[in-house]
């Protein structure tokens, strides 16, 4: 592999479905940049197109939904998004239970991930244990013998991050990675993503509807509304001076949960 890529970009992305026989555009021409060493948050209400954008970056589309237009660029060169999966881009999804094969052990998932990169045998076993240790999974030998149904949501999300690390992909797509976890586990998983982003110099795309998660973790923010990116900026700017109406609504609703905080002038 050549020097690891540093910039992942999607340009002019348009995604549509058909409803009552009519085309209905769900993502209406967006550009999005993910840079190594930074956490970019893609934030917006349910149905704004965040998850579809995330899927398009991996060359995936749900049934009945079509990517009409758009290209994915890696350091300025156009690439087929499907070739990025597991090599340049690793993913963590919202529902960890359905993201694992229910009949495979964690060890089998880990070996599969590494085999995709041509790594097998004792080298693979060594990397698996190292990745589990890095994500804070205690007793890795025991965890590797477990199936998904025997593990808690927090353990599964750590395991998913461990698999992402094994791929050594420079980019991590995290679609609502903590939404199904309780607050304490959420804080732990967010801290872990933050730590890994720094230690591995990852470019992270964090999809969320919770401005608290944005405040906790994001460097840059893109706000999505009805299939369009309506505002981008640093996290500090988005909170201090939101311009677009959907951004202002998100920030105001979020700050309303902190009555003891001073409301911005």
């Amino acid at each position: 592999m050549s020097a690891a890529a540093g910039h992942l970009r999607v340009e002019g992305l348009r995604i549509a479905t058909r409803r009552h026989g009519q085309p209905l555009e769900l993502v209406r021409g967006i550009d999005l940049d993910i840079r190594r060493g930074q956490v970019t948050a893609l934030v917006g209400a349910s149905g704004s197109g965040k998850s579809l954008t995330c899927l398009a970056l991996q060359g995936l589309m749900p049934p009945g939904v079509e990517c009409l237009d758009g290209r994915v660029l890696l350091d300025g060169r156009e690439v087929a998004p499907a070739t990025l999966r597991g090599r340049q881009v690793a993913t963590v999804m919202q529902a960890p239970r359905s993201a694992f094969n229910p009949v495979l052990t964690m060890a089998a998932h880990a070996r599969e991930t590494l085999a995709a990169r041509g790594i097998t045998g004792s080298d693979a076993e060594r990397r698996i244990l190292a990745a589990l240790a890095e994500t804070g999974l205690a007793e890795p030998e025991r965890v590797l013998r477990l199936h998904a149904f025997q593990m808690s949501g927090g353990m599964l999300q750590r395991m998913m991050l461990a698999l992402a690390l094994m791929s050594e992909a420079p980019f991590l797509l995290a679609d609502e990675p903590t939404t199904d976890l309780d607050l304490v586990l959420q804080a732990q998983v967010l801290a872990l993503i933050e730590r890994l982003a720094v230690s591995r110099d990852l470019g992270v795309l964090l999809v969320t509807h919770d401005m608290g998660v944005v405040a906790r973790l994001a460097d840059h923010v893109a706000v999505m509304d009805h299939g369009r990116i309506v505002e981008t900026g640093t996290a500090a700017d988005i909170f201090a001076s939101p311009r677009a109406a959907p951004t202002r609504a998100l920030v105001a609703a979020h700050l309303a949960l902190y009555p003891e905080e001073e409301v911005a002038p």
Binding site: L183, V184, Q186, G212, A215, A218, A235, A236, F239, E260
Partner: peptide, 25 residues
């Protein structure tokens, strides 16, 4: 009440895990 604090271990852990209102710095 306004600004109430929980005092049990579990309560404090939940309270400490509340996401920040704004980005740091």
């Amino acid at each position: 009440t306004r600004g109430f604090r929980l005092s049990s271990d579990a309560g404090r852990r939940l309270q400490e895990a509340v996401l920040p209102a704004r980005p740091r710095g």
